[in-house]
Amino acid sequence: MEIIQKSAPHLRKPNANVVRMMRDVVIALLPLVALAIYNHGLTAVWIMLAAILSMVGTEYVYYQISDLVNKEKFKLKNKNFTLYNYSVMVSGVIYGLTIPDATPIMIVIIGGVIAVLLVKLVFGGMGQNIFNVAAFGRAFIALSFGAAVGVANFVDSEVGATVLGALSASPFADITVNYSLMDMFTGIGLPGTIGETSAMLILVGGIYLALRKSFDVFVPLVYVGTVFVLSLAVMVRMDLDWWYPLTHILSGGLLFGAIYMATDPITIPVTRPGRVYFAFGLGVITFVIRLFGQYPEGVVFAILIMNMFVPAIDYPQWARSKFSVRSAIIFTAVVLLTIMAIWVGVTYVG
């Protein structure tokens, strides 16, 4: 028997581990995958397979090669290779679910390979990436192949007009004439990306993750809350009805992005106040892109933009783990100013 010397603490929390956290995300996404297949049949199967395999495969091949170059033996559990912990799998599933159903498989694969390679692997693997891998892949194929997908509408390049597309074309016309709020909630039979359309199933997954404490529930709450409050301001200003804020929340991947992409811990700030600022920023950017931009959908761009601000939010000189009175006051002021800006700005739309 041998006595081992170690430093305190001598206990480690049993159910805290990366595999559990990432696996939980996959589990939470399964109903969405099922719905995608139910709605889109084989198309969805091929897209999902292409998205997952391109990402997982890229990581696998990359580490095979890098171990060969470094003359190390490839091990499933070597210190960089992170396939076993589901992290790349999570990216793959999320990426797949955000893809419009008319996208050619080749494009899906190219986007997946590029995203994992450029965003994750060259930065040094898991934990080092600045951008959300799935969001990057999605934005990449939208920008590079928008035309190839064959639909004039760049980002939401799917068959038929999406809810947000309709909203973008005529911003303040009641769209519930064409799409009922209930349809948006259940997401059955609605045009859109293959997996983002069912608010109901997205929420079920979110609740599961919240109960398992596998993500930070503050981020989606603040993100969706921000969009809600801003659209509420527009509703009051433009004399619209409740369908307006509800449509914003239920459509166009907001819930999906808020729950699955904006909570990827690796690419968001680490402190609670930092996460609140981050999520607020996401809400504002998303809403502004939807309202003023030419793209009807802003979620993935908002996430990528805010990803860039993470190092600044986490900067040691000012990042704090709790709100101070001062930071709370400043933040409240910023929130009020933003609402005012939207209040004034919305009159210039359309």
């Binding site: 805290a16 992290s87 930070d216 690796i266 680490v270 402190t271 609670r272």
Partner: peptide, 11 residues
């Protein structure tokens, strides 16, 4: 494993 920046330690 590599830090996943989950923030649990801060919380």
């Amino acid at each position: 494993e590599p830090c996943v920046r989950c923030g649990s330690c801060i919380y």
